[in-house]
């Protein structure tokens, strides 16, 4: 198994025992394995990378091969209790499309992403270099990320598109950040719902 990620603890808190959970970009299935073990969820991962898909099968996790850029066609409205996307939203082109799809097939969506507005990232840019950090571990020339956005950007996107932010927790490399999250947090985890 790869290293345990701290956003997993937050996500786990938001999941009730026995829920139906969909994890988009599930990687090797580590989070789902964890949720199956501690929350007894009926979990499904979605992955389009054959090596990661194989790793998920090795971990005994249900995994469906699907290209998320094409949405979640075939999955039923409101079927899942939670649809999770952990540290993958920044690597998708169709940002709004996938958010809409997550809230179509799930009662709630859980999204975590690296905060490009984190002070160390800002400092790096001021020094003239693209940021490389624990939450943005790649170099500019090999990053899988295609969308670079801040917590403030994401809040605005939700506001504009009728997405309800039910809860947000922000972290500075593992430590909870209570104030000035857009400046002090490297990663944010959101619990989202549909307005109304």
């Amino acid at each position: 198994m790869t290293s345990y990620r701290y956003d997993y603890d937050v996500i786990t808190q938001w999941i009730e025992p026995g829920e139906k959970v969909l994890d988009l970009g599930c990687g090797d299935g580590e989070l789902l394995r964890h949720l199956m073990d501690v929350r007894q969820v009926q979990g499904y991962g979605v992955e389009n990378d054959p090596d990661k898909l194989l790793a998920s099968v090795n971990n005994g996790v249900n995994v469906i091969q699907m290209d998320l850029e094409k949405g979640l066609v075939g999955l039923e409205d409101g079927f899942f209790d939670h649809v999770i996307m952990s540290l993958s939203l920044q690597a998708m082109h169709n940002t709004l499309g996938i958010l809409a799809e997550m809230l179509r097939v799930g009662r709630e969506a859980v999204v975590s992403f690296p905060n490009f507005g984190y002070w160390r990232h800002r400092q790096s840019i001021l020094n003239g270099r693209m940021p490389v950090s624990e939450s943005l571990p790649h170099q500019w020339f090999n990053t899988p990320n295609v969308r670079f956005f801040t917590i403030a950007d994401f809040d605005a996107l939700c506001e504009m598109n009728g997405i309800a932010v039910r809860e947000r927790l922000a972290f500075d490399e593992g430590k909870l950040v209570l104030d000035e999250a857009n400046f002090l947090a490297s990663v944010a985890v959101y619990r989202l719902g549909r307005n109304g």
Partner: peptide, 12 residues
């Protein structure tokens, strides 16, 4: 999936 069965799917 509709029936909450364990299933994995790969497109080779």
């Amino acid at each position: 999936l509709h029936n909450k069965r364990n299933v994995s799917y790969a497109e080779i």
